[in-house]
Design a protein around this nucleic acid. Structure first.
Lengths: 211, 211
DNA sequence: CCGCATCCTCATGGATACTG
DNA sequence: CAGTATCCATGAGGATGCGG
């Protein structure tokens, strides 16, 4: 663990635990589900193996993650503890805050379509619910993410094979702009490829009752 | 700025901006209002002057804070930009997450009563509103923080001199436990000193309709 | 292969002294 | 008061080794 701030302040103590470099990105990966060491390394381009090991130990000691035997074979899987899973709220808060940084586009940065699951969840949750259920697919870089809106809320996940009312194919920045509400479908018509029932996409991205 | 993660991911880009050591603690200080260099240094025990200067420059370049002339004299004051002020949400999320780390008590850590304003705001906001307005004082280490509940919400600030319906004097850990709902007034009777209308304190700490 | 541990280099952080 | 300058300790990042 990096040197403690030594302050009796909630933010300082939270950062003593998850403020070290890579820690919150490890949590991001595990918020999408348990993962093995190799999967974490793949999802965190640039992390050194010694750092990843160190951070996993630190987070385990602090009670944020746990190690257990993976489903298949006798390998190790890492997963969030219940307390660790509660980091979803501040992590999604930071993701919402980062919207101005994301709508600039990816530049030369690494990108994995799986990284869209959390931002879409953070941005779409809390929007007014549609008057019926819709399941739409968002295709970025050949990866299909699924958004399901019901009257009780919105959930985002990798595509599980179920029927989709519509699919939109676009760049990540466009998708995030649509989800954040800084872009709308009409303005981006030339930049997106739509199949299926377009009203489903409107229900997801443009809340039905705006006025 | 520390080396970028180089990931087109909202969390990674947010951390590229505010993930460096001390950055979020500087934001914490500025969430309580604009401050001068000296005040920041005082509120961040242990920070080296070169680091504070570096971080202030980084945050200014990124658009999180701004410099302007202070009210008095020709000194410089630092303040959050509108975008920087939006960090309140993720910061309060981290503070709420840190509750288990805080109820252990301060240990040997530095403590300033002003640091209670944000946690109390994060923990008390969103609790069911009382059926009338109350203004209570919370005295820790001789510093008086004021909590005002109205039907429209709860606001926390340093005491501004107005009349208080009640005052509670206790250790910081007790106060945070009460605000987080892991302690209640009846269990901590021996550890707190109460003046004034106790029902005002119950309205603030123990939501009126629990069942 | 997977899951690390070790070694090495260099950038960064921290403490202190100093200056316009 | 509001920072610079300097020095040293620490941590990050990359390469490689190695047991199961």
């Amino acid at each position: 663990m990096r040197r403690s701030y030594g302050q009796y302040c909630g933010l300082a103590r939270a950062l003593d635990v998850v403020g070290d470099r890579w820690n919150l990105l490890i949590v991001r990966q595990l918020l999408m589900g348990p993962a093995r060491y190799r999967e974490l390394q793949d999802g965190l381009p640039g992390v050194a193996t010694n750092l990843l090991t160190d951070r996993l130990r630190d987070l385990e000691t602090a009670g944020v993650i746990g190690r257990r035997l993976a489903e298949e074979g006798n390998a190790i899987a890492y997963a969030l503890t219940p307390w660790g899973a509660e980091l979803r709220e501040p992590v999604e808060g930071l993701i919402r805050w980062s919207t101005p940084l994301m709508t600039r586009g990816p530049g030369g940065d690494h990108f994995r379509a799986e990284w869209l699951v959390l931002p879409l969840s953070a941005l779409l949750t809390g929007k007014p619910a549609a008057n019926r259920s819709w399941t739409v697919g968002i295709a970025v870089d050949g990866v299909l993410v699924q958004v399901r809106t019901t009257r009780s809320g919105t959930e985002v996940s990798p595509h599980d094979g179920r029927d989709l009312d519509a699919v939109i194919r676009a760049d990540a920045a466009i998708v995030l702009g649509l989800a954040a509400g800084v872009l709308n479908l009409d303005d981006t018509r030339a930049l997106v490829d739509i199949e299926g029932d377009e009203s489903a996409l409107r229900a997801v991205f443009n809340p039905p009752t705006r006025s």
